[in-house]
């Protein structure tokens, strides 16, 4: 990852882990990698308790033959969450 201003390393608050244990797999540049099986639980928590009530964008990316990727994590689904009660984007 480059060091442009768009890239901010994310730190997930510990209360997320407490609320939905095991949901957050890793904290990446600009994003949080989520375990697929806990996705709905984490989303529900974020909507109800963290104020992220607005799902702006959902999209897929195919990382075929991409640096650092293999067949076990070829596809990625990306969710952009916001809050309509403020500007907060999900930690970035």
């Amino acid at each position: 990852m480059s060091n442009t201003e768009a890239t901010i390393t994310v730190e997930v608050p510990a209360r997320w882990q407490d609320a939905v244990p095991g949901a957050v797999l890793s904290e990446d540049a600009n994003s949080v990698v989520v375990a697929p099986e806990s996705l709905v639980a984490l989303c529900t928590y974020l909507r109800d308790h963290e104020g992220y009530d607005y799902l702006s964008n959902v999209t897929g990316v195919d990382y075929l033959n991409f640096k650092g990727r293999d067949a076990s994590n070829r596809f990625e689904v990306v969710y952009h969450l916001y809050s309509t009660r403020g500007a907060v984007a999900l930690l970035c």
Binding site: V32, C43, T44, T59, F75, V77, L90
Partner: peptide
């Protein structure tokens, strides 16, 4: 930004439409 990573064989993910019905068309 949330990300879910999926394998090349049979990629499957639970739908978030119960949380946000607005995900329907995008999914």
């Amino acid at each position: 930004m949330l990300k879910a990573r999926l394998p090349a064989e049979t990629p499957e993910l639970p739908s978030v439409t119960p949380v946000w019905p607005g995900a329907e068309l995008q999914e």
